[in-house]
């Protein structure tokens, strides 16, 4: 039976990976059609010279960094607070935010922003996207950092406080350093999710805050363009490296 299982695994892994491999291979094709005509970097040059793609990549990066910083700080503090003592309200809300379909979160935020804008003279833009990403990322951070805290020995903090540390010092000097690998892996997770999100982002972004997924979506919709293969390959490769780094951190 184990031989059949291994054969099956080969097929299953092919199913998971071949579409991305094929996409990557054809991003190096010199032809615009799905017929191999020789190796070329022409589509990478086209992608890099595309001003819209460049602008969107900068937006995505800025949004990713800002959302990661805010969500990681808020989520880590929250995980620590919940570890000290559970709060049914916060845990339930976090869980709810995790299972609510993206499209529902997107339209609810859109409705909320439009309602707020009646009273304040601001518009949809990068800031609304960042806030949306922070909101849906907090639950990820609390989950990852919370898992790390469950393996942490509470006695260490008590010992620090017996020796005269304040609560804050015990957290800052004893607990937080132990949590850092979990915090870093949570931050990577948030950045990846933020960088990749399309559904929520497209609903709450303004005209000047188009992100990379939004531009890719529009290009994919418009018809076949090998530059999309090139930029997609770069994204898969870049995110793949980040994911592997995150896995390493979580195991350590």
């Amino acid at each position: 039976m184990s031989r059949w299982l291994s054969l099956y695994a080969v097929a299953a892994y092919s199913f998971l990976h071949l579409p991305l491999v094929v996409l990557a291979v054809f991003s190096f094709n010199s032809s615009r059609y799905t017929r191999w005509e020789g190796f070329s970097l022409v589509w990478y040059r086209a992608a890099f010279e595309d001003a819209q793609l460049g602008e969107a990549a900068v937006n995505s990066f800025l949004i990713g960094v800002a959302a990661t910083a805010l969500a990681t700080i808020a989520g880590t503090l929250c995980a620590y607070g919940l570890w000290k003592r559970q709060s049914a309200w916060i845990t339930t809300t976090l869980y709810l935010s995790l299972v609510t379909p993206e499209i529902v979160i997107g339209i609810a935020l859109l409705a909320f922003y439009q309602w707020v804008f009646r009273f304040l003279s601001i518009q949809l833009g990068i800031h609304t996207v960042i806030l949306a990403h922070v909101m849906f990322s907090i639950a990820y951070v609390v989950t990852v950092v919370g898992a790390r805290l469950r393996t942490f020995d509470a006695g260490l903090e008590e010992a620090a406080m017996d020796l005269g540390a304040t609560e804050w010092q015990a957290f800052r000097r004893v607990t937080l350093p132990q949590l850092l690998p979990g915090v870093a892996s949570a931050a990577l997770l948030v950045f990846i999710t933020s960088f990749d999100d399309y559904v929520i982002t497209s609903l709450v972004a303004g005209v000047d805050s188009e992100t990379l997924p939004m531009v890719i979506y529009a290009m994919a919709r418009r018809g076949f363009n090998p530059a999309v293969n090139a930029i997609s390959t770069l994204i898969v490769f870049g995110l793949g490296v980040l994911i592997l780094a995150g896995e390493r951190l979580r195991e350590s």
Binding site: P19, F26, L189, I192, P213, I216, S232, I243
Partner: peptide, 16 residues
């Protein structure tokens, strides 16, 4: 790894 790489790109791969 493929699960966490861009959902949009993975969907686009099937369009391709």
């Amino acid at each position: 790894v493929p699960f966490w790489t861009s959902f949009l790109v993975r969907t686009y791969a099937w369009m391709f």
